[in-house]
Amino acid sequence: MFKQLPDDNAELVTVIIEEQSVKVPSDYSVAAAVLANWTGPSRTTPVSGAPRGPYCMMGACFDCLMEIDGVPNQQACMIPVAEGMSIRRQDGARGVEI
């Protein structure tokens, strides 16, 4: 959905989006990484299962909720990427392990 402007100085990190390893600049937010490597909706809603993606990119709308390093319902637009981070789609309501 997005393309990267040329940036030769970018430091890269590897993150795993739904099993796919991708390299992204280290100052991306998780939502930016997902939008730059779009493979489909970043979440489905708990109410109707409708597809959604990031909307405001400033922490207001909560439509960017994703599972990040195993923690569900994280605001992907507010969290910077990190080396080895695992990013998954948030499907409906979260579960909780006992």
Binding site: M1, K3, Q4, A10, P25, A32, A36, P51, C56, M58
Partner: peptide, 21 residues
């Protein structure tokens, strides 16, 4: 509410913060 619909500010944030277009 469809994916791919965003605010202008959101996209501007990505341009500033991540050089994404």
């Amino acid at each position: 509410e469809l994916p791919g619909v965003m605010t202008c500010g959101a996209v501007q944030n990505m341009l500033k913060g991540s050089s994404l277009v």
